[in-house]
Design a protein around this nucleic acid. Structure first.
Length: 136
DNA sequence: GCCAACGTTGGC
DNA sequence: GCCAACGTTGGC
């Protein structure tokens, strides 16, 4: 089991919209590192959903419903998508501000590679984020 | 709206 | 293969 975090601007694609879709294709990734992360995702992997630009917080938890396949929205290049499905909205959103002050989250890829839209999360980071979200 | 970080492109 | 120029992302 692996853990990930994906970013979305709520103006364009919010958690609530995602949740209303039950399951959706995560398309439009045009960055090689992000693509490699998509390709490494396995069915059942847990994925945090982060609101960038507006909100700046982790709002929900999703899981990989279908492993990578070619991105139908790509006109050229071998870009891929995965299908994600929402599991639940977090009891308490975990803000970027909080993450920055958490000792256990100082090395999180969200901070280290702030421009990457799909980043891996370590198991202990996953656990700690759930703890901060009042999920255990 | 600005700027830092970083990826991509293109000239050499 | 290097590097300057440029574009994009995302936080502030």
């Amino acid at each position: 089991m692996n853990y990930w975090l994906v970013k979305s601007e709520p103006d364009t694609y919010s958690w609530d919209f995602f949740e209303s879709k039950k399951e959706d294709m995560w398309d439009g990734v045009r960055n090689y590192q992000a693509r490699n992360n998509l390709m490494a995702m396995k069915k059942g992997d847990q994925v945090f959903f982060y609101h960038s630009n507006i909100g700046l917080e982790i709002v929900g938890l999703a899981e990989v419903a279908k492993e990578h396949y070619p991105d139908p929205t790509a006109k050229e290049g071998n870009w891929v998508v995965v299908n994600l499905k929402p599991i639940k909205k977090l009891n308490k959103s975990v803000s970027l501000k909080t993450i920055k002050t958490e000792y256990k989250l100082q090395d999180i890829a969200l901070l280290k590679q702030s421009r990457l839209s799909v980043v891996p999360i370590k198991p202990d980071e996953y656990e700690h984020i759930l703890f901060l979200a009042n999920e255990n």
